[in-house]
Simulated scan of single mutants.
Amino acid sequence: MTTISTTSIASLQTTTSSATPSGNDIPAQIARITQQIIKLTQQFKEIADGSGSNEEKQKKAELIQQQIAMLESQLAQLQNKQAEEAQQKQETSAAVATGINRPSDENQVDIYI
């Protein structure tokens, strides 16, 4: 059984409180997933206080843990994708700045044979 520390929940709450998830860009998806993880962890905490048999509570807890694990893997994939895109963007901007022969209207040579 996986336990979730309260420090990780607090860090998730601080990161999502300033984010406004709108649109389908990666930061918005990350914010939505972290909010879902926060909601699920709160539900996980409330299971012990809820009514029902121990078996029902355990099944609910396992289901919530599976959902959290799935969301955490999606979050990791999105964060990796975001890091890769940022690195590619940085590499392409560095490559554009260092080149010499860039055809444009200002520096184009017409050669006639």
Score class of each variant (00 low, 15 high):
K89D: 10
E62D: 10
I64F: 02
D49V: 09
A83H: 02
P21W: 02
E62A: 10
A28Q: 03
D105C: 03
A19T: 03
V96G: 04
T14M: 10
P27Y: 07
I4K: 01
A97L: 12
T92A: 15
K81C: 02
L78C: 01
I37H: 00
Y112M: 06
T14F: 06
I111P: 01
A19S: 10
A19K: 03
V109K: 04
S11G: 06
K57C: 11
E55W: 06
S73R: 09
S104N: 15
A86I: 05
P27M: 08
R102I: 13
A83N: 07
I33K: 00
L63Q: 06
T92G: 01
L40A: 05
A94I: 13
S73W: 01
I111T: 10
T14Q: 13
R102S: 05
M1F: 08
A48C: 02
T34L: 06
G99V: 15
R32W: 02
T98L: 15
I9T: 07
G52P: 02
Q29M: 11
S11H: 12
S11K: 14
E55D: 13
T16S: 14
S18W: 01
I4N: 01
L63Y: 01
T98K: 15
S8T: 08
M1P: 02
N101F: 13
Q79S: 05
N107C: 02
M70V: 12
Q67E: 14
P27H: 07
S11I: 12
S22H: 04
S5N: 11
T20F: 03
D110A: 14
F44L: 15
R32D: 09
A61P: 00
T14I: 09
S8A: 09
N54W: 06
V96K: 15
A19Y: 01
T16V: 14
I113A: 11
K45V: 11
Q87T: 08
S93K: 14
Q90H: 08
G52K: 07
V109N: 02
T3G: 02
K39S: 15
E72I: 02
A31F: 05
L63E: 05
I113M: 08
T20D: 04
T98Q: 15
Q42D: 15
M1R: 06
G99T: 12
T3A: 07
S18Q: 11
S5L: 12
T7L: 12
A19Q: 08
I68H: 00
L40S: 03
D105Q: 09
Q88T: 10
Q13Y: 01
N80V: 04
Q42H: 14
Q42I: 15
Q65L: 14
Q79W: 03
Q90D: 11
I30W: 01
Q65M: 09
A31H: 03
A94D: 13
A86V: 03
A31D: 03
Q65R: 11
